[in-house]
Simulated assay, not measured.
Amino acid sequence: MLVLAFYILTFAVGFPANIFTFVTLLGKACRRVSASDILLLNLTAADLLLLLFLPFKMVEAAAGRTWPLPIVLCPVANFCFYSSIYLSSLFLTALSVERYLGVVFPLHYKDRKRPGRAMAASVVLWLLASSHCSIVFVAQYHGSKNQSVDTSYKCYDDFSEGQLKFVLPLRLELFVVLFLLPFAVTIFCYTNFVRVLLSRPNIPLQKKQRAVGLAVATMVNFGVCFAPYNISHVVGFVEKKSPPWRFYALTLTSLNAALDPIIFYFSSMAVQRAMAGVVVALQNKFRVVVGWCSSEVSTTESDGSFT
């Protein structure tokens, strides 16, 4: 039940936050689109894809880690869920590269900064993640046991020995290609991005703080959300079986959809302005409510003084 509560909390926080961010970025892009906007929109779309299929994980958690739904939905739900995880890591890396090039090589990158390049890169990243995660369809039937609809079936976990021989090496490839390399590139880019910004005296302090916040939020995202699950791939390959804690590591990956809005806040002035507008509106409503309550109390006290 703890896993189910975690999924529900992630959905409750992440879904409205990502919808708000997506609408804000889309409105900004309709006026004037930039490479950063395109990457952020794709990152938001990846998060929404994860959140839309998170209810399947909720049902699975509520059923005690078994799959009570039709078996045909198992590979579909997992394909979308896993693809969204790796899409998030790839687009976080693409954003780090975009920030790095814009700060370290401002003049050289400005001449080549075109939204079309970001769109092409986005298509490549979607194809890269989805093609790798399509192994869930093959693994479902490769050397499989006779799968009947029963209450003990575990989706993408109840593997035969033949399936494990097929799945475990591919999981190791996912670790290297879709996690380790992007993480290394992200560390390199944000380390140099922050170093260069902090060394320039003409950069406003607020911008430097945003840069540090962006780098820290991204590193936390990789370290907390993506690292445990991907490390389970390595452990599984070494031990020749899925580690028993893999299910809980997978649970942490969904937290990424709730943490990404923090990155959106540090990355986009449009999101910051929209968020500031929401805060001001809430403050005004709070003042109205407080003022109304105060007037009601004063009226009640005055009425009592006359009786």
Rank of each mutant, 00 (worst) to 15 (best):
L2G: 12
L4V: 13
Y7E: 14
T10F: 03
T21L: 10
T24F: 03
T24N: 02
L26N: 14
R32L: 08
V33D: 05
S36A: 12
D37F: 03
L43Y: 02
T44M: 03
A45N: 06
A45P: 01
A46E: 04
L49T: 13
L50K: 07
V59D: 09
A62R: 11
A63V: 08
P68F: 08
L69K: 11
C74E: 15
P75Y: 09
P75G: 09
V76Y: 10
A77R: 02
A77P: 02
F81R: 15
S83N: 13
S88H: 06
L90H: 03
A94N: 01
L95I: 05
R99P: 00
G102E: 06
F105G: 03
P106G: 02
P106C: 02
Y109P: 01
Y109D: 10
K110D: 09
K113G: 02
G116T: 07
L125Y: 04
Y141R: 14
S144F: 08
N146H: 15
S148V: 14
V149N: 13
D157P: 02
D157G: 11
D158S: 14
S160W: 02
E161V: 06
Q163P: 04
R171S: 11
R171M: 14
V176A: 14
L178P: 00
F179V: 00
L181N: 01
L181H: 01
P182A: 06
Y190F: 13
T191C: 03
F193M: 00
V194L: 00
R195A: 14
L197A: 01
L198F: 07
L198A: 09
N202C: 04
N202V: 05
K207Q: 15
K208D: 02
F222W: 11
V224Q: 08
V224T: 11
C225L: 07
F226S: 06
Y229T: 01
G236H: 09
K240W: 05
P243S: 08
L259P: 02
L259M: 14
P261E: 11
I263S: 11
F264M: 11
Y265Q: 11
F266N: 04
S267D: 06
R273K: 15
A274S: 15
M275F: 13
V280N: 08
N284P: 08
K285C: 11
V288H: 15
V289R: 13
T299S: 09
T300E: 12
T300R: 15
S302Y: 12
D303T: 12
G304C: 01
T307S: 12
